[in-house]
Amino acid sequence: MHIPSIEVHKAATLAEASALLGRFSPDVRLLAGGTDVLVDLKTARFSVGHLVALGGIKKLRGVTEERDGLRIGALTTITELDRSPLVAGAYAALRDATSRMATPQVRNAATVGGNVAGAVPCADLPPILIAMNATALLSSDKGERTVALEDLVVGPRTTVLRDNELLAAVNVPRPPERFGAAYARFGLREANAIAVAGVAVALALNDDRTVRSARIALCAVAPAPKFVKEATRLLVGRVLDERACAQAAALAMEAAEPISDLRGSAEYRRELVGTLTRRALAAAQQRIGR
């Protein structure tokens, strides 16, 4: 279907984008890579009279190394993030998500901001970002604020963003020593398959190989990316043996609130969460090395 009549406003600055949002709200959407917005408009998931195109805001684009970590501009494409030389070392776990999602063409258009703030339950970046303790920098003409990534998305396609607020950047804190993260996802094809379930894990170990910190987050098994708080409590201070991993997997399965749909039943998804949790924990551990 064709997109109904719509006006596209190209914002040159964040402030301008925020002002445009404020002016046309609620008959307006942000347009980043457009890979979700265009499909939604064509299939009439929603219809709006105005789009605010962010493409012209240069400042929103790119990955930079900051004192306290990595700053990923909201307009950075998935491909740019995937190919960034800064995504190295412990940060490289991000590639578990960026290299496996969607298609090359979609990744060339899709932005980090769209993936995160789009708040689609099966989006691949939020879980690994949550596991890596990332924060979201939100910006409006009234100023900026920072929220933890796990607090950004509250439900399917709903966030804590205010009407004239947008996501400016995602900050991934510099990982501590002896840190490893991984994202294990399950799709029904080898490529271009939406996640049926995904589990992201980030671990930091003490010198004695006990767990210093552990964060687990789930994809596609809840209305929003699911941060499994209990897993942190369970694992900290322990050695990651088989029993600990199995218990963490059980916690993750319990935390999941999957639905049944075409891609899999709730029971199957829950089972996948268990398997993927064990696999992600193993992969993260392996990345820490000895």
Partner: peptide, 18 residues
């Protein structure tokens, strides 16, 4: 698929105006 500045993109997901 078309190439935009040399990279492949889906032209069905791009607004020409952008």
């Amino acid at each position: 698929t078309v190439l935009i500045d040399g990279e492949p993109l889906n032209s069905c997901l791009l607004l020409a105006s952008t």
